[in-house]
Design a protein around this nucleic acid. Structure first.
Length: 278
DNA sequence: CCACGATCCTGCTAGC
DNA sequence: TGCTAGCAGGATCGTG
């Protein structure tokens, strides 16, 4: 599942390869629901002949800016991949959007589950408004100990649920939330207000650490994730909690447990991540 | 404010 | 072997 590190990796890979390049055509839309506020014809009209000026990321959204102030925003949800491939390559199964670039390469959205979404915004203001309505501070760029402490103050919700709420902090998903809570030795069901200052600081540093490590390893390839050059990441080799039910905790050897919180699995070490803080 | 359940999709797996 | 039922998972929406 692409979370912040996977989207950041894609942005870093794409940035030098598509910036300054002109769009020659938009095609291949076979599932209009993936374009909630636009259409193939709309995108063709807005982008064709225009040049990519920026590649950016906010939370789990990938942003591509053009010289006519248009912005394309992609959310890959669970199974989406954004690939940069030679235009002559046959379309692989589940390709739902093709943006052809000058020089003969295609930017292709491939998504077996069709949960991914592509938006088109006319101007930075429209884009910023959309993001401001949905996203809290970016967990890589804006979150620090003091901000996390302020945001958690007097919140009664479960810490893991809050971390997954993109309006609370943007970019953390199920996998990195579990890894951060493991790193900080905090039980996922702890209520936010029960955390001590020390624990909140530990958590803020853990979030940053797992995201930075994820980026250094070019993301976690759980199931289908690939970077835009088709290469899987390496972080799945280094997971401590996520997906490791029944396997020993790398720190203490206790067996990792899996519970369900808000219809989502949560993996943790029952020995080191206690519900009652001591 | 908080929790829970349904929804969207389809590849994969467990179970028969 | 072949089939099917059920699960996974991010975001959003509706209900309690």
């Amino acid at each position: 599942m692409p979370e912040l590190p996977e989207v950041e990796t894609t942005a870093r890979t794409l940035r030098p390869r598509i910036t300054g390049r002109r769009v020659t055509g938009v095609r291949g839309v076979d599932w209009p629901r993936m374009l909630p506020n636009t259409s193939e014809a709309d995108m063709q009209a807005a982008l064709c002949g225009h040049t990519v000026t920026e590649v950016d990321r906010r939370g789990k959204y990938l942003l591509i800016g053009f010289d006519d102030e248009q912005w394309v925003m992609v959310h890959r949800k669970m199974s989406g991949n954004l690939l940069l491939v030679p235009g002559e390559m046959p379309l692989e199964a589940h390709t739902h959007l093709v943006v052809a670039l000058e020089g003969g390469e295609d930017l292709r959205l491939v998504d077996a589950r069709k949960f991914g979404r592509v938006y088109l915004f006319h101007g930075r203001d429209q884009l910023d408004e959309f993001l401001a309505e949905r996203l809290g501070p970016d967990s890589l760029l804006e979150l620090d100990e003091k901000l996390l402490a302020a945001k958690l103050h007097k919140r009664k919700g479960r810490i893991k649920t809050l971390l997954l709420d993109q309006a609370f902090v943007a970019g953390v998903g199920n996998l990195y939330a579990d890894e951060a809570l493991w790193e900080a030795r905090l039980h996922p069901l702890r209520s936010a207000e029960s955390l001590s200052t020390r624990e909140v600081y530990r958590l803020a540093r853990a979030i940053k650490a797992v995201l930075v490590m994820g980026i250094e390893r070019r993301g976690t390839s759980f199931s289908t994730y690939r970077d835009s050059d088709g290469v899987p990441g390496e972080n799945q080799e280094f997971l401590n909690a996520y997906g490791r039910e029944g396997q020993p905790c790398p720190r203490c050897g206790a067996l990792i447990r899996r519970i369900v919180i808000g219809q989502r699995s949560a993996f943790f070490c029952p020995k080191e991540q206690k519900l009652r803080s001591q």
